[in-house]
Nucleic acid binder design. Sequence first.
DNA 1: GGGCAGGTGTAAT
DNA 2: ATTACACCTGCC
Length: 281
Amino acid sequence: MGVLLADTAGLDLKRTLDSGQAFRWRWDGPVAAGVLGRRVVRLTQAPGGVRLLGADGDRVAAAVRRYLGVLPSRAHPRRAETALREDRVLARILPHTSGISLLAQDPWETFISFIISQNNNIPKIMRSIEGLSRALGASLGDGVYAFPGPERLAAARMRTLAASSLGYRAPYVRTAARLVADGRLDLAALARAELEAAREALLAVPGVGEKVGDCVLLFGLGHRTAFPVDVWVRRAVEQLYFRGRRLRLDDIQAFARARFGPHAGYAQQHLFAYARGRLRP
DNA sequence: GGGCAGGTGTAAT
DNA sequence: ATTACACCTGCC
């Protein structure tokens, strides 16, 4: 049943969907169910790649392939891995992390999701996003809800936001939604803009710091040289490249640019996955 | 039940 | 320029 998605050989679905870049996937045994826009998608790992379950047509398959980062071919994770294997440290790490893909997620949903992610943990982030979708998003049937659009979120009552356990992030989410809803922040334009200009625009939003901004750039706006530094990536860089020496954030960024260049985003994903799985704090 | 994790904003030096 | 602390919630 379903269809094997082209170009997904070698893609590790679990590593990809559980890598902290997406928050709307649920595993039911071997099947991952997620919401892409207004469509529920079910995926499973197959011997030759990723299988799209259900009776969806070619257009859906193409959309899922773009989402999974295997289209266009220049964005394919295999290219990044080939290049990153030149790095001695990553060559050692890759056997544990190979197959991770950088997802091409919806800019708006990614923007809000990572504002919620600040000073937070993944299960709680997922609950908050689920709660917002349930309260404000369109029903897609079977108890599944789309992520609410900017206008819906901008107009939401504070108590609705609070009911989704946003905590002190609620005003950040509301302000961010208003900026997008009335066009003062154009996420699509930031996807086309230069990295530094886009970064600056995101950092001007209350609740968006360097880490969240870089996550939005990398996971939602297609800026594949962004290098989000959270505590795990910091540990990985300091321990694996600098013998545990304490570095400043700017120095980590400069190091990533120099060392990984156009593949910095992918390097970050592998370092993050490795650190979370195998490094001690 | 107190301590802790997780980024950002703000106020302090 | 760097540093210390508060912020909300859920988990241990």
